[in-house]
């Protein structure tokens, strides 16, 4: 089937089998391997990307469902030279160990900060319920999100 979608600002017209998942399009067709597959049973959140500005688990969406959508992956939010403030906060707070869960954590955390006016420890922990860190480094992840939430909006890259 034909689908068209925008990923990190670039428009793509693709012909894919009906049973293709969004994460397969991202990783295998577009070569954007920053989005990870941790469980494939929609539990871990490693595959989290933004669809039309909201986080979704890209392992749980069919190609047909994302036709016309705007997708942002971890590659679309910052560069090694110019990190997104959430990426910078994760580095600053040592919020990653193996790094496998990190792209999903960061994509979800960005939405959380955008949506929640008053983020506290509890709200961050609840907000990250759909993301699992197998290294179990939650303490520093929560610290990083709270740290990024304190960065003024104006200093935040889009």
């Amino acid at each position: 089937m034909k689908v068209s979608l925008t990923v990190n600002g670039d428009r793509h017209e693709l012909d894919v089998p009906e049973n293709t998942l969004l994460v397969e399009i991202i990783r295998e067709r577009l070569g954007l391997t920053g989005t990870h597959i941790g469980c494939d049973t929609s539990q871990c959140g490693a595959c989290t990307v933004h669809m039309n500005g909201r986080t979704v688990k890209s392992c749980s969406l069919l190609a047909g469902q994302i036709d016309g959508a705007e997708i942002t992956t971890i590659e679309g939010i910052g560069t090694p030279e110019d990190l997104h403030p959430m990426q910078a906060a994760f580095r600053e707070c040592h919020a990653l160990q193996c790094g496998f869960c990190t792209p999903g954590m960061i994509m979800r955390a960005i939405e959380l900060v955008e949506q929640t006016p008053e983020l506290d420890n509890k709200a961050v922990r609840e907000g990250l319920e759909g993301n699992i860190c197998r290294c179990t480094g939650y303490h520093n992840i929560v610290e990083a999100v709270l740290h990024a939430a304190r960065v003024p909006q104006s200093a935040r890259a889009e």
Partner: peptide, 9 residues
């Protein structure tokens, strides 16, 4: 319900 990503869909 579920988690944030699930509630978005």
């Amino acid at each position: 319900i579920g988690d944030g990503q699930v509630r978005n869909l």
